[in-house]
Design a binder for these strands. Structure first.
Lengths: 241, 241
DNA sequence: CAAACAATATTGGATGTCCCACCTTCTGTT
DNA sequence: AACAGAAGGTGGGACATCCAATATTGTTTG
């Protein structure tokens, strides 16, 4: 039933045929019960099996690579890939930058979703957070404060803070999504050139969030996360007027 | 600074070059201040400008199409596209199906994220929900009940219920993400072949959610949404357990 | 004059072929 | 035994060529 011949004469639109080809490749992986890391047939072999030209096949393969389905290693082969959300990052970043030229709607929507995820899940994360994980969060706060005192930006420490905050949930998909939103926001932020922010104030806001988490006060932690995101949202507002 | 020559001799990895080409195309769109719906140069022209072969360019364009950045219309041209998350859907669906062959981790993670978004945002949605929107939600409930009474599955009505629930937030990105998670879950569900579920019970669960929303009780609505997702999670457990 | 039809130009869709770049593995020498 | 180099196989990339779809233009026809 699967691996339905894409090469059949069907009068599908071009886009539908491309997606059908992608589906056929994915079905082939599932049919052969390949797992992450397993090798796929060579390009020529796949093109033969699926009944399409090599260039056509490559177009689909590159899409699947971007989707994190396959990993392509030059001179070695193609393999079933572990999760990868780089593609989503790129796409959303572009959307966000494009929207900033107008009303910034998409950029704001992105912040809204990230806020919903973080403030909505902080309670769950606190439920299973170990003392070691809590210490790691504070470590990020301290690093941010040190960098702020030195007048240096702390993009990486900021990202690390949020990542560690939700590590206890043990949800790779969530971590990936948050990373995507973080990267997109950061790119937009760079684009906007908002370099004049108060580093110390940002670091302090993160410490307040940490303190609420350390106290075990879920409502307060969610509230302070919301305040943090309000600040981010305001920065975007300032740019798009 | 933008549109850096990808064709330069740099010894980047193949994947990095592909992504650089994609970035160049997106930069070109931003540099020329094109907006959604505006036409892009032809394939040949773009290949010329970016200094790559047409097949190489096409591979990048297909990726951008999958990411919802450009829209390609056979025989007409290429245009800056409106948002499109079909690609994300496909990739996540594949991941979920693949994970079901083992422990189902990714499928469960997906449900967790969807649950976090819905139960975390239901309060915000209720804040701005109009009476008309509330009526639309009930309409979906009634439809589900009718279909359940007739013994028919109500996949579409179920999806519509959740979509309408969060329409008040006016966040296209969120709606898209929820739609993605819904489709992925549905595909996994079909794959799993869990057809023997109690339609009436599912419809009743949705009515209880609606009633909590109608009463304006945010905590209760969130609680009942959580119960609903617990049921979904259990169904996945039954399959992979 | 207007509507319907047909020819054409333009654009993307697809394939085959050729050569290059990269990685692994084998093999032979030291 | 260890290292170096050769060899084979893989994906990367560029053309050239033809196919297919769409919109436009021009002609025909009522």
């Amino acid at each position: 039933m699967t691996t339905s011949g894409v090469a059949s004469q069907a009068r599908f639109s071009a886009q539908a045929r491309l997606r059908a080809l992608q589906a056929d490749i994915m079905d082939l992986i599932l049919d052969r019960e390949l797992e992450a890391g397993d090798p796929l047939p060579t390009e020529n072999e796949l093109a033969m099996v699926l009944g399409v030209g090599r260039n056509t096949l490559r177009e689909s393969l590159k899409v699947l690579q971007a989707l994190g389905v396959v990993e392509i290693r030059h001179g070695f082969g193609m393999f079933v890939a572990p999760s990868n959300f780089d593609a989503l990052t790129d796409g959303l970043t572009f959307r966000g930058r494009l929207s900033l030229r107008h009303k910034g709607d998409e950029a704001l929507e992105l912040v809204d979703v990230r806020q919903a995820l973080e403030s909505g899940l902080i309670g769950n994360a606190m439920d299973t957070m170990t003392s070691g994980q809590l210490a790691a969060v504070e470590e990020s706060v301290v690093l941010m404060e040190e960098l702020a005192a030195a007048g240096e930006a702390f993009v990486e420490a900021d990202a690390e803070f949020h990542r560690r905050l939700f590590e206890p949930l043990n949800n790779a998909l969530l971590i990936s999504l948050l990373a995507v939103f973080w990267k997109v926001y950061r790119q937009i932020h760079v684009e906007v050139g908002a370099g004049a922010e108060d580093l110390a104030a940002v670091a302090a806001a993160h410490r307040r969030i940490y303190e609420a988490v350390a106290k075990g006060d879920k409502a307060l932690a969610a509230e302070r996360l919301n305040r943090h995101f309000d600040g981010i949202r305001n920065r975007i507002y300032q740019v798009v007027g």
